[in-house]
Nucleic acid binder design. Sequence first.
DNA 1: GATTTGACTCGCT
DNA 2: CAGCGAGCCAAAT
Length: 105
Amino acid sequence: MNELLRQEILQVISLIPYGKVATYGQIARLSGAARHSRYVGFVLKNLASDSNIAWYRVINAQAKISLKKEDAQGQNIQMAKLQAEGVVVVSGKINLKVFQWQPDE
DNA sequence: GATTTGACTCGCT
DNA sequence: CAGCGAGCCAAAT
C-alpha cells in the first residue's frame, strides 16, 4: 500500500481551514493523485476512527455526505460537525460556492 | 496472482 | 435536468 500517498492525503485534509470543505476529487488532485478519487475515501474510512483528522470536511462532488444509508450515524456526526463550524447545510447539501475550500486563496 | 469492490467523477443519453 | 455507464487505481479476498 502507499503509506506516502495516504499521508499526503491526510496532510491535504489537515490543510482545510475551519468552516470550509473540500471534495474527494479536489483532495486527490492536491495530494498528487489526480485519479485516485476513490482511494481518498478509502483512506479516510480507515483513519477516521483513530485520527484527529477533520475527515468530515471532505464531501463528494455533489456537495453531499457520501456515506451510505447504513452509516446514518456517521452522516449525522459529519453534518453536525460541519454545522458546528458554521457550514450551512441545505437539504443535506453544502453550498460549495461559499464553503468549498480554495487552495489558492 | 487474478478478480471484485469501493466514503468518486465525468460524460453521454 | 435526471439517470446510467464507463473509467481509474489501490486494497481486500
